[in-house]
């Protein structure tokens, strides 16, 4: 019975992902194909004047630009199914390879920010919720409201001004020091370049989780079993540990998983500020440079990324919460 339910769940989720990817790919392909950017011009770049109309026609023929859009899409989708995402025009290498390389850099950034913002947001939310109505609660809440009105890239610029320009503690940008071969770059160099982008992204991420945790904790503290525990004389951290934490940690964790989309968006902006060589910078370059294969590849990839986050949030609820698990079995 149980295995049947689980396999059904996996099947339905896979079907969901598949339809989602098909829809997104059709939508984004359609959008891109109507773009005023000429793919041949984007491919050839500065040598456009040296290309004769016949050569141009040949390229169009070779790329199948004369075919109707539907068959263009089917060709593209077909090669994706065979694992071929095409060749990036900007990097002159397979799109899958570019995405893989860039994603490793982005993953380091996003993972750190995700963890730090989760932990600090959770702690701040608990403090605010426990001290509801006091000056510290007001301070934390005000801080979160200001943060949610703050553009990520501006915060990045302020961080650069303070830590790189004024204090000179960290380099201004890039993923590795300029003018050094890749094999000579040490781990500390990597970390030094990673620190400020990760800091920016972490600070921004705190607001949402802190406010959410605070509301949840306030709600929980108003429930009857907490009154009963209080009547028995429990209070402070012990009360929180015994009765509060379990009720607020699960929503917080799944919220954090469900926020992969915002995390990715924040990474795009942060990487742009710090010229950090991640996936976010790649999609911006692909968009500005008319690199359609890479752009579409990253769009699909980011969709899967967000989907995985939501799926994990869903599964966590099912696995951790005994009440939901019981329904599920």
């Amino acid at each position: 019975m149980r295995t049947k339910r689980i396999s059904l769940y996996i099947l339905s989720q896979a079907a969901k992902l598949l339809t989602l990817l098909i829809a997104i790919s059709i939508l984004s392909f359609m959008l891109v194909s109507y773009s005023p950017i000429d793919p041949i011009r984007a491919y050839i770049g500065g040598d456009m004047l040296r290309v004769s109309p016949e050569q141009r026609a040949n390229i169009e023929e070779y790329w199948g630009l004369n075919e109707p859009r539907v068959s263009q899409y089917l060709n593209w989708a077909n090669s994706i199914l065979h694992g071929d995402l095409g060749t990036s025009l900007l990097y002159r290498s397979p799109v899958a390879q570019v995405i893989a390389e860039r994603f490793v850099a982005s993953l380091a950034l996003m993972a750190i920010a995700w963890l730090l913002s989760g932990i600090f947001g959770f702690i701040l939310g608990i403090i605010a919720g426990m001290k509801k109505g006091t000056w510290i609660d007001r301070l934390i809440k005000g801080y979160c409201y200001v943060l949610s009105a703050t553009p990520t890239f501006w915060l990045g610029l302020v961080v650069v001004i303070v830590f790189s320009v004024w204090l000179g503690w960290f380099p201004i940008g890039l993923g590795t020091p300029a003018g050094i071969l890749e094999q000579d770059v040490s781990l500390t160099d990597y970390l030094r370049h990673l620190f400020l982008p990760a800091l920016t992204l972490s600070i921004i991420g705190v607001a949402n989780i802190a406010l959410h945790t605070r509301t949840k904790l306030v709600e929980t503290l108003n429930s009857e079993f907490i009154w009963f525990a209080k009547a028995k004389g429990e209070k402070g951290l012990k009360l929180l540990w015994r009765h509060g934490l379990r009720n607020i940690s699960l929503p917080a964790i799944s919220l954090q998983f469900a926020s992969f989309g915002e995390l990715f968006g924040g990474a795009v902006l942060t990487e742009q500020v710090f010229s950090y060589p991640g996936l976010g910078q790649a999609i911006v370059e692909a968009g500005l440079g008319g690199d359609v294969p890479l752009l579409l590849g990253i769009v699909l990839f980011s969709t899967i990324f967000v989907y995985v986050g939501n799926l994990m949030a869903d599964i966590l609820y099912k696995v951790i919460d005994p009440r939901i698990r019981k329904e599920w079995n």
């Binding site: 939508l27 959008l31 989309g261 980011s302 967000v306």
Partner: peptide
Amino acid sequence: IDLFISMPHVVTLLLISFAIG
């Protein structure tokens, strides 16, 4: 609705902006 929130906001924006020029 589900379709539109399944992509990161910034990515969707970028794509539409790219398509319109």
